[in-house]
């Protein structure tokens, strides 16, 4: 049945001028072949059926529907987030083009400034790994590579993936962290008991504990993000919840000099992330853990 849906997508995105006509042609062929093989619908009818579904696109036929459906609130207590507006109808996602990434770490620095990460804390939300050519092997990667990057390596930025099945949320013993309806995993700084089980259960090393009182110079502080409340609790990337729920994009996307980062709403079929997921071949880090991360890599 999924094969039937595919040509419809191609036709839908074709007006954007992004889809390769050859690809949609091939997929159309594939769909027809599939129906023929199934032997239930005559070949002549299948073309007409395809056209009919394309005329009335609905959410259930969105090729990303299965991904969006999985990306629901988890352990959501209905409590408002202190430093941001309430969640909207969006399902946030990010795509990072590793072919474009030059390992300049500008996203890291922009994130530190935007999110008031303690200058003495010794961690950053984004960790850029220098990867060996020819392998996606984290054991051979280097986090503390020399500034500037090496043209013989490739770079893999890792941060909180806002997983659809967040092991950190499952692992928190007191429901001090949860997944909001728009997919952002947040932490309640007033409730965190500092057991650090979420850091243990996270497969992406995305969560960080404030072992020291975070220090941010007064003039560099972002008034939209707390500082003092973060002492002795766990914090992490929130897709810049204070910006994205106000219609802005994240600080890392803004800072990237090569445009390697795309951020957007999966519910919006016109958004950059939706189009990339539908038209490019993408992959996710540690897919085998089944966490269903909401950050895809491409290239």
């Amino acid at each position: 049945m999924t094969e039937q849906k595919r040509p419809e997508t191609a036709e839908k995105t074709a007006p954007e001028g992004l889809t390769l006509s050859r690809r949609s042609f091939l997929e159309g062929l594939g769909a027809t072949a599939g129906i023929l093989a199934a032997g239930t619908v005559p070949a002549l009818l299948s073309a007409g059926a395809g056209a009919a579904t394309a005329a009335e696109p609905s959410l259930s036929e969105d090729p990303l529907a299965s991904i969006i459906e999985e990306n629901n609130a988890v352990n959501y207590p209905g409590k408002p987030v202190k430093y941001a507006k309430a969640a909207g109808k969006q399902k946030w996602a990010m795509v990072i083009d590793v072919k474009a990434c030059i390992g300049c770490r500008r996203c890291v620095y922009a994130c530190v400034e935007e999110n008031n990460i303690g200058r003495n804390s010794g961690f950053t939300y984004i960790q850029v790994l220098e990867m060996e050519p020819g392998r996606i092997d984290l054991e051979h990667s280097e986090l503390h590579y020399a500034e500037g990057g090496n043209p013989n390596k490739w770079y893999l930025p890792v941060q909180c993936m806002q997983c659809a099945k967040p092991t950190c949320v499952y692992g928190c013993p007191v429901i001090a962290t949860w997944k909001e309806p728009d997919g952002i995993v947040v932490i309640d700084y007033d409730k965190c008991i500092a057991c650090r089980n979420c850091m243990v259960t996270c497969p992406y090393d995305a969560r960080h504990f404030n072992w020291v009182e975070p220090e941010v110079p007064k003039e560099e502080r972002n008034p939209d993000v707390p500082v003092e409340e973060k002492a002795g609790v766990v914090e992490k990337c929130t897709f810049c919840i204070q910006r994205t729920r106000n219609g802005q994009t994240t600080a890392c996307v803004e800072a990237c000099p090569v445009g390697a980062r795309k951020f957007g709403d999966l519910n919006d079929p016109e958004s950059e992330v939706s189009i990339i997921l539908k038209t490019r071949r993408v992959w996710r880090l540690k897919e085998e853990t089944g966490n269903e991360p909401m950050i895809w890599y491409v290239g």
Partner: peptide, 11 residues
């Protein structure tokens, strides 16, 4: 909070 809001999926 371990008593008030325990999370059943946490070991």
């Amino acid at each position: 909070y371990m008593l008030l809001t325990p999370n059943g999926s946490s070991p």
